[in-house]
Every structure is written in C-alpha cells, then in structure tokens.
Design a protein around this nucleic acid. Structure first.
Length: 107
DNA sequence: GTTGTGACACATT
DNA sequence: AAATGTGCCACAA
C-alpha cells in the first residue's frame, strides 16, 4: 500500500537517480518527475529532505548551475566539497552545466 | 477554509 | 541585452 505517493516521492525518486559526477537542475528534476512547474516543489521537497543520505541535494542546482544559499546539509560550503568529491569542479558555487548537467540516458 | 510563502523556470516587456 | 512579472504545486499559520 504505497499510498504514500505524495508528490515528493516522485521528486525524491528522480533525484536519487542522478548518477555520481553529474548534476541536475530543479526544472530538470521537476520535468522528469512529471511537470516542470514543480521546480518550486522540488526545492521544497529537498528542503524537508527526509533522507539526505539517499537524496544528494548537492547534485541538484538551479538553472544557473548555482547552488541555493539555504543548503540543508550544513551550508553551500559543504556542497562545494561534495561536488568536488564527485569530480565536479565548483567555481564560486557555480558548476559547469554544459559539462556536468545530468543528461537523461538516451532512450 | 483562506492567505501567503517558497532550495525555481519561463515569458514578456 | 537585462530586469520584472507570472505560473505552478505543496505546505504552514
């Protein structure tokens, strides 16, 4: 009875699918979750982040490839370290989306 | 039950 | 070209 299909579940599912060494945008996750307008809900979903160990919020960035100032793990600083640990160079809290934005695996 | 806000994105001016 | 306003959904008071 997985009646727990609250919208967040879908968002979490998508975020959990982000492979290591890649990042995705809120709009991207929202679009994969069902609707691109969910971008805001995605941010809120990560804000509650019930499973930070399974939901790599640090791999989710905004459209500019920049991180939010309200990071949940302990600060944007933490996120920079995590992304660099994944192999994603972060410049001034910005990542090179053209190179690291997660691309939906070819269908 | 209604109003306001929010880790965004896009369209329009 | 940049800046602003709007739209969407869900949750809190």
């Amino acid at each position: 009875m997985e009646q727990q299909k609250n919208s967040y579940q879908k968002i979490y599912d998508v975020v959990k699918q982000i492979p290591r060494g890649s990042v995705a945008t809120y709009g991207q996750v929202a679009a994969l979750a069902g609707n691109r307008r969910w971008a805001r809900v995605v941010g809120y979903a990560l804000h509650v982040n019930p499973d930070p160990e399974q939901i790599p919020c640090h791999r989710v960035v905004n459209r500019e490839g920049r991180l939010s100032e309200a990071f949940a793990f302990g600060g944007v600083n933490r996120q920079k370290l995590l992304l660099e640990a994944e192999g994603i160079p972060v410049k001034d809290d910005c990542v090179r989306l053209e190179k690291y934005q997660w691309k939906r695996v070819a269908p």
